[in-house]
Design a protein around this nucleic acid. Structure first.
Lengths: 339, 339
DNA sequence: GTGAAAGCGCTAACAT
DNA sequence: ATGTTAGCGCTTTCAC
């Protein structure tokens, strides 16, 4: 019972002009008589016309949407991606940029070989003008697949192998340094690290930066317990560190979730934070604020990075810039109560 | 320098058949000779053909995407939506259903009058087959706008006014009852409630259910402090309750975030949980598990509800079912350590 | 400055 | 069972 949606044709008839003229008005092309413009505009108003996106996309080969792909391995993957507040921040940053440019993000998950194929097909079908990729896997095949499908692509975080693709990243080394310098300045002498899985470059660099700053301050290299970016793994790592180094008085955790886990263990063992043990996290996630005590942490400007990612993609799609670019952001120390 | 993407025409030429036949094979229509099917399939393989979505959408009037709209009022809105893990769960549920049906969600935010117009236009342009709406505002104009634009729509949570639209919701009353019964069974005698803003129906019903169960158990109606679903507001409400009712030994918070805030205040004031004060939350968010102590809470099956929402929309788009339906889900008590 | 006409890549009658 | 044909609604040369 749908009355057909009005088309350009309908508006043209209503305004007594040709389709071409209406199209020009709708798309803001100059060379249209102001009087006729008004005529057309009121006809659009009267008919309630809205341009059909599919028809437009068919001829312009632009859709006005970009794929926002969360890519990584496995399992209950999709179920847990948004459990990590990190992705929410990415979405916010991307949306913040796109909406100013009348573009929309399509959310895609690429957690398996099959899903990756689907995702690549989706963008190849011209359903999106380009792809923004957030990988949670050290060696993700997706960027290569996208590239060889000639899809404009921008990555969050540099890939393990060098690939000719634009990306935004953080200066993780500087982040580690900030954490070390802060703990040293607070007079902490027996430091320890809750690290990331060693195959993640970001984690390695945070650790390297932390170590380098300590060495510069004349300190020994700290003991490291490996975590997996989860609250639980942070708690376990903290317990292990305390067992082997009971006198520890300062801890650097490679993300806030693990820092929170560490805090829980410390408190349960009766250590005061920061008096007995100072804790520094990484990311400045929401939990850094709500955690008890609130976390001193190295802030990663995720929203800004995500917005930049969208901007880079926009430039690439428009052809404004074609050669790949890497944008590296600076972390910032946020001092709260845990250190 | 883009070599043109291969079209149906190219495949047809390669296979020595007509476009129509290729189309039939691609779309799995029967009445195609098996031999020819193989011929076509290998031609598709050789050319690397992928159907163009815009062209397909133009004729079928189906896009294979649905709008996932987060709607509500104001401010730093977009920046905070994903801070609430609730939306992540909705996304997960929706994606879980859609991917089985080769559909994709487009993420839209409608936080202002202007944004709402944009969003409605977007779907009216035929960019999506329908809309899934999650409102965070008691009296949201968006559903009405969508309906009068004849967009197939399904809501998360019943709207304040009765609107002829499908929706999924929780039996909040039953949820409140579960919380009350549990606290009573645990022998708590002086109960209190950290409630929701009174204009939210869900909050009112949780409270009503809680009260009704208490009345049935012969208890007095509990004191209520109003919160705003945030950690902070929960902490403040708890502080206020303790001030006015220092002997309270059981608390029901209308969501987990407020329950966590309450726990923080209780611990800081030296109350043991659950020995001195038992705390029951609502939702079963991730923080219910990571909170110290882990929260006993009323689980809302958000993922299932979101999946059902997607399914209802699918049926509506296909025309399988046209009259609006309301699906009400049952909450479930999850007992952990806080009560 | 405006209109006529071609065609984007696909599906779906209809004809064979 | 397969091919022919007519559009879907729009943008965009190319004439005028």
């Amino acid at each position: 019972m749908h009355r057909q949606a009005p088309t350009l044709e309908d508006v043209a008839r209503e305004a007594g002009v040709s389709r071409a003229t209406v199209s020009r008005v709708v798309n803001g092309v100059r060379n249209v008589d102001p009087g006729i413009q008004d005529l057309v505009r009121s006809a659009i108003e009267r008919t309630g016309y809205t341009p059909n996106r599919a028809a437009r996309a068919l001829v312009t080969r632009r859709t006005g949407t970009v794929a926002l792909i969360v890519s990584g391995a496995g399992d209950a993957f999709v179920g847990h991606v948004f459990a990590d507040p990190f992705f929410g921040r990415v979405v916010n940053g991307v949306v913040g940029y796109l909406r100013l440019h009348a573009m929309q993000p399509v959310l895609l998950f690429a957690e398996s070989e099959a899903a990756r194929k689907q995702v690549v097909d989706y963008v190849r079908q011209g359903s999106a003008d380009g792809a923004l990729v957030v990988s949670v896997q050290p060696d993700d095949p997706l960027p290569d697949m996208l590239l060889s499908a000639r899809v404009p692509t921008v990555l969050f975080a540099r890939p393990a192998r060098t690939v000719p693709v634009s990306c935004v990243d953080l200066d993780h080394h500087a982040g580690g340094r900030l954490a070390a310098e802060h703990l040293v300045a607070r007079g902490r002498r027996r430091l320890a690290v809750i690290g990331a899985p060693p195959d993640l470059r970001a984690g390695r660099e945070r650790l390297a930066g932390f170590r380098a700053a300590l060495a510069r301050a004349g300190r020994d290299s700290p003991p490291v317990a490996e975590g997996a970016f989860t609250l639980d793994s942070g708690a376990r790592a903290m317990a292990a560190l305390l067992r082997d180094h009971p006198a520890v008085d300062g801890v650097f955790a490679a993300n806030d979730l693990m820092a929170q886990g560490a805090c829980q263990v410390l408190r349960e063992l009766g250590r005061r934070i920061p008096e007995d043990v100072a804790v520094v996290g990484f990311d400045d996630a929401d939990i850094a604020v709500t955690c008890r005590p609130p976390l001193t942490t190295v802030r990663q400007p995720v929203e800004d990075m995500a917005a930049a990612m969208a901007r880079l993609l926009g430039e690439q799609v428009q052809g404004t810039r074609t050669e790949p670019r890497t944008l590296v952001f600076e972390p910032e120390l946020v001092v709260r109560q845990s250190a």
